[in-house]
């Protein structure tokens, strides 16, 4: 029986491994070619995920789409985590009107449902890759920023930091030397927990037609196309790509959840 720390590390490695494998598979494999002799096949040995109406192998398309989703997810969650760190610590460290302004901004962004906000940002960029990337990156930071702000505010009150301030250590040093390192575990957990959200929202917005263009092999595109074939009984077009996406995302959600539990003092020793 492994203890919680060991199993969490294992899970993180597994998630990382799955990530690399999918990305490699997606990058290495050639574009799924249309083959009209093979169209509309239900899942079989040669095509475990079946084929679509153009005879393209759905496994290949799914892997390519997932690989794209993962790259996008990594990029967007990294950007929004960085934004959260910057805004959260600035808010706590500077206080005063900066704090009010940032808190107001957090409330503002949280007031519009993610999907709607991403749609709006995507429209502002004329949809497409940059639209959805910016949309996801700019809409996911508030929750983490709020957590980091709270943590940083508590740290600010810590006697040893008050002392450091009084002894003339400049704010910049206190911030980079003491506050930011303390926030890193929270930041990591937040980043890993944000990653699934980012992927899901990218797929959702693409599904609605505001994200990646139809010629890209994105999961959202695949699922959106599958809608038209559902009533004719081609369930495999929707089932497997979605299942693969859900499996990847749950792996990360689980890893993030475990990490969060280990980092929270109340549950760290269970």
């Amino acid at each position: 029986m492994k203890n919680r720390r060991q199993s969490t590390l294992l899970l993180l490695l597994l998630a990382g491994g799955a990530l690399c494998a999918v990305m490699l598979a997606g990058a290495l494999q050639p574009d799924a070619a249309a083959d009209f002799s093979q169209k509309n096949l239900p899942p079989c040995l040669a095509h475990p995920f079946g084929t679509d109406w153009l005879g393209r192998d759905m496994l290949g398309r799914t892997l390519a789409g997932l690989s794209l989703s993962i790259r996008l997810g990594l990029l967007t969650s990294a950007v929004s985590a960085a934004a959260a760190l910057a805004l959260g610590t600035a808010s706590a460290a500077l206080g005063g009107w900066v704090d009010s302004a940032i808190s107001w901004l957090i409330d503002l962004v949280m007031g519009v449902p993610h999907i709607l906000l991403i749609m709006l940002i995507s429209l502002a960029c004329g949809r497409g890759f940059w639209g959805v990337t910016l949309g996801v990156a700019l809409s996911h930071w508030p929750a983490l920023a709020r957590v980091l702000r709270g943590e940083a505010l508590q740290l600010r009150q810590a006697p040893y930091l008050q002392m450091a301030r009084r002894m003339g250590v400049p704010w910049g040093r206190v911030l980079t030397g003491h506050i930011v390192p303390h926030l890193l575990p929270q930041l990591w957990a937040g980043l890993i927990l944000q990653f699934p959200h980012a992927i899901l929202h990218e797929a959702s917005v693409t599904f609605l037609g505001f994200g990646l263009p139809p010629e890209e092999p994105a999961i959202g595109v695949i699922l959106s196309e599958s809608m038209a074939y559902l009533t004719t009984g081609r369930w495999w077009l929707a089932l497997f790509p979605g299942l693969t996406l859900a499996a990847t995302v749950s792996l990360f959600a689980l890893a993030g959840e475990r990490l969060r539990l280990l980092l929270a003092p109340a549950s760290a020793q269970e």
Binding site: L200, A203, S204, L223, A238, G242, A246, V249
Partner: peptide
């Protein structure tokens, strides 16, 4: 971890 629209599908 499941997209809402896929659950709907």
């Amino acid at each position: 971890s499941t997209p809402a629209f896929w659950l709907g599908l």
